[in-house]
């Protein structure tokens, strides 16, 4: 393991310590440093939005806490769920009285703890709703969509929900539009090299130098196929075929596209991929409304990338275009 760290067991706490020192103008925490909230939370009259999950994916999850996006986030250990108690602390802090919506990725530990937190919050008369992100098409076939894991597409869900809540939407409206957004979001990834969880000290999986794994999960969950690495154009085309087949857009549809680096893949390579994505979409008479290229949901130093397609209608377009400002994501 070759990492710029101190004691591995302090990895998360020291990361959070640095984060609060850097962004004390925007972020705050409850009594527990793992419970990150907007400095101005709760925002009066606004539905609260909360997420949570394991560390190791920055900017996911806490990076989207800020104006126009989320109000709070419970942070777990690397690749491990935060506790329901921490999620409850976030929930109480971000609730202005209009209720709280949980938006997070579909992973067993997270679901159990968020459901528990929701039950505890209800005992305190807080209205809690849940929207699960299940955008990773490689993790289960379309007929078992509810089993799919949540990956980079959750950033679009945060963006849409955040704008709707900021504009004064009710809890039902926020849940409804976020679910509609997610039904139009699909993601697929490719991994070229593994990452190492600091406390474990060895890579999460092994892969030959000249191999790639298409569809691999962000914690090293098995993908669809492992084979010899191909050219960027070839990999991109294969992923785009699978995504377009699953999403089923019609000619003339308007999309937002995200090309997300998993941690160790340079921006240059992401732009090479985007060039091909744009050409493939244009060939099919599909329009790109906005392109997001960079690191949005990572897996520490894993090499590889994911592509997310988001089909837009008029309301989703205006919510996506709405301004947002967090320490990791700004759009004006």
């Amino acid at each position: 393991m070759k990492k710029l760290i101190n004691q591995p067991e302090n990895f998360v706490i020291e990361c959070l310590g640095g984060l609060f020192k850097a962004h004390s103008d925007k972020l705050d925490f409850t009594e527990d440093i793992h419970c990150v909230v907007r400095k101005d939370a709760p925002i009066g009259g606004k539905v609260g939005l909360a997420t949570g999950g394991g560390s190791g994916h920055l900017p996911v999850f806490l990076g989207y806490v800020g104006k126009g996006m989320l109000d709070g986030c419970a942070v777990g250990d690397v690749f491990a769920s935060p506790s329901s108690d921490q999620m409850l602390a976030v929930t109480k802090r971000v609730n202005s009285g209009k209720g709280v919506v949980y938006i997070y990725g579909n992973y067993g530990g997270d679901v159990m703890n968020f459901d528990m937190a929701a039950e505890l919050a209800e005992l305190e008369d807080i209205d809690v709703r849940t929207v699960l992100v299940t955008d990773d098409i490689a993790s289960a076939p379309p007929e078992e969509k509810t089993r799919r894991r949540g990956v980079a597409g959750m950033v679009f869900a945060f963006k849409i929900a955040g704008a709707k809540a900021e504009l004064g939407g009710s809890i039902e409206e926020v849940v409804g539009v976020t679910e509609r957004a997610l039904s139009n979001i699909r993601t697929m990834g490719v991994a070229l090299s593994p990452c190492t969880v600091p406390m474990v000290g060895k890579p999460t999986f092994t892969i030959n130098d000249d191999d790639m794994e298409i569809g691999m999960g962000i914690h090293g969950e098995p993908g669809i196929t492992r084979e010899k690495l191909e050219s960027s154009d070839r990999i991109t085309s294969r992923m785009m075929n699978a995504l377009l087949k699953d999403l089923g857009p019609s000619k003339g549809d308007k999309l937002a596209v995200m090309v997300n680096g998993l941690g160790a893949t340079p921006l240059e390579e992401l732009y090479i991929m985007y060039g091909k994505i744009f050409d493939l979409l244009t060939e099919k008479d599909l329009r790109v409304h906005r392109a997001y290229i960079g690191e949005f949901a990572t897996s520490m130093e894993m090499a590889g990338a994911s592509i997310t397609l988001f089909r837009l209608d008029d309301e989703l377009t205006s919510l996506l275009d709405y301004h947002a400002e967090t320490p990791f994501f700004s759009q004006y």
Partner: peptide
Amino acid sequence: INRNAPSS
């Protein structure tokens, strides 16, 4: 118990 023993 939930607070003190937060495993599955």
